[in-house]
Amino acid sequence: MQSQTTNIMIVGVGGQGTLLTSRIIAKVAVDMGHDVKVSEIHGMAQRGGSVVSQVRFGEKIYSPIIKKGDADIILAFEKLEAARWLDYLKKDGMILINNARVDPLPVMSGKAKYPEDIVDKIKQHVAKTREVNATDIAVACGNARAANVALVGVLSWAIGIPADKVENAIKELVPAKALDINLRAFNEGYKLFS
């Protein structure tokens, strides 16, 4: 049973667009006929705090939250958040890290330092660490704001779901006028490591 379940964590900073990402992936999983559960905590999301969404799908899902050490894939929109949630990753799991730095208050005020080598430290523990520069991909596609959809592309590749199924979900969930750029960003993300 466990082996048939896919556990995905999407982590970042409030306002980075993690919610849209989890919504797209969850919709694809539903369309593919899986049982699906998604967990998010609202409230602090717009206020720059650390945010996490969890998507679980498979034949039968009970808990809406992922056990520590049980995530197949973590997608981190920000480097510090990758480190913060790393313990949720399975032993042979994959972590996708967007090469973005958002300074938290203790760093902005000089009380703490942003650890420059955080991705290297993660790499020491996790063989399947992949870095992504989603903003560069999105800018190349026409708009920096499509960065989160580029990350949807990378994540879809990592999960191994067909691109066309995700494209359909993006068409439903992304406003029509931004669709072309977003679809391009998605495909660039999807191709990045494949």
Binding site: G48, D87, K113, I118, H125
Partner: peptide
Amino acid sequence: QLNPGYGLDKQIPGRPPLMC
């Protein structure tokens, strides 16, 4: 036993919510 993890989370600064 709870998965002990890598402990990287303890080495990084917190991210409290802020006024916008």
